[in-house]
Amino acid sequence: MQIDLSTKTAIVTGSTGGIGLAAAKGLARAGARVIVNGRESDRVETAIRAVLEAAPGSDVSGIAADLGSAEGCDSFVKAAPEADILVNNVGIFGPKPFFEISDETWETFFQLNVMSGVRLARAYMPKMMEHGWGRVVFLSSESALNIPADMIHYGFTKTALLSISRGLAKLAAGTGVTVNSVLPGPTMSEGVKEMLKEMAEEKGVSVEEAGEMFVKSERPSSVLGRPATVEEVANMIVYACSKEASATSGGALRVDGGVVDSIVP
């Protein structure tokens, strides 16, 4: 399969690192004009250079904006008023005992993980539908289905994204616009590596070995038996954004290494 997105403009939110940056690189390699995003200008510039290094000669730009507020989303849309592809990747996570999660923390997770995608889909989808082509991808998680007891607030936001993406797929039926969610399992992003450092130091092992230990102890249903790489997750995102994925809409596309113990998607 030769994915060609050379006439398309793709936005990837939260793309200064991790899965988002890997997705931006993959879309650029497929020929898309890519717009990366982060909160800090210097990190956005670094991400632009990383994409150019991965896809020399590609058309890549960046917008620094905090998408955890309506004002931040509005400023982003003003800077980039149209797009053919929207990858709602931005999000935060982190373990915290349920009884210690404040209302403020709940609201912070909801505004960034959920409402950023809602606001940007509301801004970009009408023109996609008018033009007769578009791709919208929401980054959910296997935690949307296997709610972690130590990250209930995070799991809740990822479950919400499944509902939103499925509903929007129905809304866009027959327009040439597809909407899907992608569900990674444990993935070796920068954030996960930071979480694993303490375990690695305690056990006297590498971060990669600590990742395998984590998956085997905390996600024992995993068929893969290790965390995925960010590139492995990005491959699914790029496919969902491709012209070849025209019959894939309303799906919850799992890249979870088999963590979700189910024979149906």
Results as ranks from 00 to 15, higher is better:
residue 239 Y to E: 04
residue 167 G to Y: 13
residue 210 A to D: 06
residue 225 G to M: 11
residue 150 D to R: 05
residue 107 E to F: 05
residue 219 R to L: 07
residue 61 S to A: 15
residue 64 A to L: 08
residue 170 K to Q: 13
residue 69 S to E: 04
residue 185 G to E: 08
residue 262 S to L: 09
residue 187 T to G: 12
residue 33 R to P: 01
residue 19 I to H: 01
residue 129 M to Q: 15
residue 12 V to F: 09
residue 79 A to S: 14
residue 242 S to K: 04
residue 57 G to E: 04
residue 103 D to N: 14
residue 70 A to Q: 10
residue 61 S to V: 05
residue 21 L to Y: 07
residue 159 T to D: 10
residue 6 S to L: 03
residue 82 E to L: 04
residue 260 V to I: 15
residue 144 A to V: 08
residue 206 S to P: 07
residue 265 P to H: 13
residue 104 E to S: 14
residue 37 N to E: 03
residue 117 G to T: 08
residue 89 N to G: 09
residue 140 S to Y: 09
residue 55 A to K: 03
residue 89 N to V: 02
residue 92 I to G: 00
residue 228 A to Q: 06
residue 161 L to Y: 09
residue 68 G to F: 00
residue 124 Y to S: 09
residue 252 A to D: 11
residue 50 A to L: 13
residue 27 L to R: 03
residue 222 S to Y: 11
residue 165 S to N: 13
residue 38 G to P: 02
residue 134 G to R: 04
residue 38 G to R: 00
residue 194 E to Y: 10
residue 245 A to Y: 07
residue 190 E to S: 15
residue 122 R to T: 12
residue 234 A to S: 13
residue 159 T to H: 14
residue 128 M to Q: 13
residue 160 A to P: 07
residue 110 F to P: 03
residue 246 S to V: 07
residue 93 F to Y: 00
residue 5 L to W: 03
residue 78 K to Y: 03
residue 108 T to R: 02
residue 222 S to H: 09
residue 176 G to K: 13
residue 239 Y to K: 02
residue 14 G to R: 01
residue 66 D to G: 05
residue 85 I to N: 06
residue 100 E to K: 07
residue 122 R to M: 10
residue 91 G to N: 11
residue 175 T to Y: 10
residue 195 M to P: 00
residue 193 K to W: 01
residue 96 K to N: 01
residue 155 G to L: 06
residue 124 Y to R: 11
residue 199 M to S: 14
residue 194 E to A: 15
residue 10 A to T: 05
residue 239 Y to H: 06
residue 72 G to C: 11
residue 134 G to V: 09
residue 97 P to Q: 10
residue 217 S to K: 15
residue 20 G to I: 02
residue 157 T to N: 12
residue 184 P to W: 05
residue 101 I to L: 02
residue 133 W to C: 12
residue 68 G to N: 01
residue 257 G to D: 08
residue 195 M to V: 00
residue 69 S to G: 06
residue 118 V to C: 13
residue 245 A to I: 05
residue 153 H to A: 00
residue 173 A to M: 13
residue 242 S to H: 03
residue 104 E to L: 12
residue 50 A to P: 12
residue 205 V to W: 11
residue 28 A to W: 00
residue 213 M to Y: 13
residue 79 A to H: 08
residue 259 V to M: 05
residue 5 L to F: 07
residue 99 F to E: 14
residue 81 P to K: 10
residue 185 G to M: 12
residue 217 S to H: 14
residue 218 E to Q: 14
residue 8 K to Q: 13
residue 17 G to D: 06
residue 90 V to E: 11
residue 243 K to W: 08
residue 248 T to E: 07
residue 109 F to I: 01
residue 257 G to T: 05
residue 132 G to Q: 11
residue 168 L to Q: 10
residue 6 S to R: 14
residue 250 G to F: 12
residue 26 G to Q: 04
residue 114 V to L: 14
residue 2 Q to G: 12
residue 35 I to F: 04
residue 63 I to M: 01
residue 109 F to G: 02
residue 140 S to G: 12
residue 54 A to F: 05
residue 51 V to P: 02
residue 90 V to P: 07
residue 78 K to I: 06
residue 220 P to Y: 06
residue 112 L to T: 03
residue 95 P to A: 04
residue 32 A to W: 01
residue 33 R to L: 01
residue 65 A to P: 00
residue 29 R to C: 12
residue 229 T to E: 08
residue 6 S to F: 09
residue 172 A to K: 08
residue 97 P to Y: 02
residue 249 S to Q: 01
residue 208 E to G: 10
residue 25 K to M: 07
residue 135 R to M: 08
residue 108 T to F: 00
residue 31 G to W: 05
residue 159 T to I: 11
